[in-house]
Design a protein around this nucleic acid. Sequence first.
RNA 1: GCGCCCGUAGCUCAGCUGGAUAGAGCGACGGCCUCCGGAGCCGUAGGUCGCAGGUUCGAAUCCUGCCGGGCGCGCCA
Length: 593
Amino acid sequence: MSLAERVRDALTSALDSCGLGEHVGAVSWTVERPKRAEHGDLATNVAMALAKKVGRPPRAIAEELVKALASSDAVASAEVAGPGFVNLRLRPAVFHAELAAILRAGRAWGRAPAATGERVDLEFVSANPTGPVTVASGRNAILGDAVARLLEARGCHVTREYYVNDRGNQVRRFAESVKAAADGREPPEDGYKGAYVAELAAWLRQVEPAVLGGDLEGLGRVAVATMLRGIPGSRTLPGIRPSLADLRVRFDVWSSEEALHRWGAVDAVMRRLDAGGHLVRKEGALFFKAPEGATDDKDRVVQKSDGTWAYFASDVAYFADKIARGYDRLVIVLGADHHGYVTRVRNSMAALGLPAERFEALLYQLVFITKGGQAVKSSKRAGNVLTVDEVMDEIDEAAGRKGAGADALRFFFLSRSANVNVEFDMELAKKNSLDNPVFYVQYGHARLCSILRKAESLGIEAPRHLPEGAWAKLAHPDELAMAHKLADFPGVVTEAAALREPHRIVFYVQELARDFQSYFTRLKGERDPILPPDSTRAEEGWEARWDLGKTRARLAWILAIRDVYAAALDLVGVSAPERMDRPPAEGDDTPDE
RNA sequence: GCGCCCGUAGCUCAGCUGGAUAGAGCGACGGCCUCCGGAGCCGUAGGUCGCAGGUUCGAAUCCUGCCGGGCGCGCCA
């Protein structure tokens, strides 16, 4: 039971003893953490909620409730405030009990493995396999992966899926461009011009020359496969799969659009639509009819007048296939520029008699790439894209740590809601690569680890279980406040997962970091160190004077913070380093004005 | 024109299923290095929550209209 639930129970029984029991269930009321600490640990609006129902002024009800709470073993004190709020202060033992529960759960704190059991297919990234992973699709990858982690924390069985658009115009153009590069010609008009195309051609000439002389279809297949896999050791063409892996994004399933056609899934699903009267031929093409009443959509082409299938045709087959695979929910992460697509898919599912309500689109606003404040028009075909590898390499190098770039990039994108546009400045990203707040948060974790290491070196163990009564030594207001915050974490995870909003986790862990670092510095000023300092240990018979019980309680508390810290960082896929060494400052690299 | 997203401190953004005196980071200014990690800590300044109505005990939060920005409304994906 969560802390808020326990307090809610205490309030309910107190109201019951006031003779208000029958009304309590009939109105909705909250137990929430007030914004201001002076208003207590928790506050309830129950008196205001009951006022109308009972026909008494809220403050009068509140007064009575406060009296009834006097005998509660969870509430230390209660007072009426403002229009009828009841502010509650909890007994330290309540927080101590939470800490004990956290230490029992360890890094699983906040996870609810049995909560839903839903089988979820989460499709994300699905960028055309004709170029490297850009920072723009990096947002998709990072958001999708973080949502997957959140859903898993709530007991969903998540399949991470990448839909590979491995047929159609783009792939044909890509193949033509590779072929042109191999022949030393310029790429076609609307072909791909990036440096990786030439590298790909050179590589194929080396390892698979025959395919360059074959048909475009075969070349396209090999080119796409190489894009996905990458060229070993290449920084120009590291491969979509390895790039994403460096971002800590992995997929369970790579679905092929081409395979849907080859196996007849597209034909089959189109026949079903036709049989249901959902297709109409007009203007020489075949259209999916917008259903009656769906004012916000039009007829959509499934087969072009030249007889080739439009992408939408394979999409319909693809979603039908996912449903057939037995998922309870189909989530897809899309950039805002694709939002028109959502209704279309839902309509087509409904037309096929499939449960369209299982389909859920997660939209995020677009990333604008700028350079020194100027907008950069980047296009995969023009080859002037900013790749996640470039950015990660840069930050890894500056921080002197592999993975720092992935941490920074993940934190950057996850520290704002998906609903806002983000600007990503190429120059700023490189220049200020160590400015990312992720390093501040990670530093806090490293500090916690450092204290535990120090304790160990002094022969003091950080206990995962404290004997009865030992928690009482943990009495510093900051310590209890942080325990409260740790107790909040499961609620934060639940909410973040329900709303598919991983940024809530990022804000939470930032607050945790701030709270701890602030506390830690304050202790210094209070001359109340957690561990016996060198000077103390130099004194004769210091052990007798040192309060080891308090130290143990605090170390247990630190262990709990570290567990939650690590759990939170893991939910957003950011590493929790045990040490962080500041990279050597480049003295000669001061900016010249 | 229609649809979706956004408009909150100088900048970047939280808060939006209604609650009390609206928060954080960066930037600015001023402080704090005797032992557990200074990638740190404390403080100050800074806000008509785009505008106007409405709903109610109470609105940044819900509703309507308007203004401003982003995206979409292809036989492109």
